Amino acid sequence: MIRLIATFGYIGYLRPAPGTWGSLAALPTGWALMVLGGPWLLVVATVLIFVAGTWATTRMTAGQPGHDPSEIVVDEVAGQWIALWPLAFGAANAGASYTALWPGWIAAFLLFRLFDITKWGPVGWADRRNDAMGVMLDDVIAGVFAAIGVVILAGLFHMVLMS
């Protein structure tokens, strides 16, 4: 169970770039959650995956020299789902299909990967904790930054359309 959660159904064993595979796997699962229960189900699932991911990461890394083995991708899933929150709420509020906001999906994915890989500012601080909470938190913070970026890009896009 620990490995199943930490690797998000063994997606973390895909090579190369398991973190990117984890982020990609988060997209259809995030969409499915939105379709099944709307944006609030995505939020609840994000909180649950964060808690389960922290538990599984703590267990999987116990006694190992590396605090963040590349096969652990549950953190990418949590962060990517956070990056999708503006799309989920935006589509629900507009009465649009979730896939109608497809440019936002691309932006959420690319921005999340950018912040997760570069580890700027607080993302890097969380990563340097060198513990399971840091493994999860750096991606949560990257997800928040990506979500803010999605909102900004959507505002700019709609401003251009309205003028």
Rank of each mutant, 00 (worst) to 15 (best):
Y13Q: 13
D127W: 05
G38S: 10
S163Y: 10
P69F: 03
A52L: 14
G121H: 04
N130Q: 08
M136W: 05
A126H: 03
P103V: 10
R3C: 10
A146K: 09
I11W: 08
M60K: 14
G134T: 01
I2R: 15
Y98K: 07
M1F: 14
I11K: 06
G95F: 09
G79H: 04
A78H: 09
A25C: 13
T58S: 15
A83H: 04
D139P: 07
R128N: 02
W125H: 04
G104L: 02
M133C: 02
I148D: 01
L101C: 08
I2H: 15
R129Y: 01
G9C: 08
T57Y: 12
Q64Y: 01
W105Q: 08
A17I: 13
A45Y: 12
V44W: 12
V35M: 09
L87E: 09
V35C: 02
I5R: 13
F115H: 07
Q64P: 00
S70D: 10
D127E: 09
R113K: 04
F8T: 12
G19M: 05
L87R: 07
L36G: 13
L48M: 13
R3G: 06
I152H: 02
G79K: 06
I2P: 14
D75C: 11
V74K: 09
W105L: 11
L33N: 12
T118G: 00
T7F: 13
S70N: 02
T46I: 07
F115L: 05
G30W: 15
A142W: 12
L27C: 14
T20G: 11
N93M: 12
R128E: 03
T118P: 00
A142E: 12
L41W: 05
L42V: 05
G66R: 10
V144C: 10
L137Y: 00
A78Q: 10
L153K: 01
D138K: 03
G149F: 04
M162C: 00
A108W: 05
P103I: 12
A92I: 11
A132V: 07
G155T: 04
G143I: 10
L114R: 04
V44R: 02
V135G: 10
F109A: 01
V47I: 15
M60Q: 14
R113E: 06
S97V: 00
G66S: 10
R128H: 03
Y10L: 15
M162A: 14
M162S: 12
A147P: 03
A107Y: 01
G38A: 09
G143D: 13
A56V: 13
A94K: 15
I5Q: 14
G22C: 04
L24K: 01
V123S: 04
G121I: 02
P65C: 00
W21M: 09
T61N: 08
S97H: 13
L4P: 03
F112Y: 07
G63D: 02
T99I: 15
V150W: 03
I152A: 05
A96Q: 15
G30Y: 15
S97R: 11
G104N: 02
A100K: 02
V160H: 00
I141K: 09
G134H: 01
F89G: 11
A132E: 08
F157R: 01
A108S: 07
L27I: 15
F157Y: 06
A100G: 11
A142R: 11
T54R: 08
V47Y: 09
W120C: 05
V77S: 09
P16I: 12
D139K: 07
I11Q: 08
T57K: 11
E76R: 04
I49F: 15
V150L: 04
L4N: 07
T29Y: 10
I72D: 09
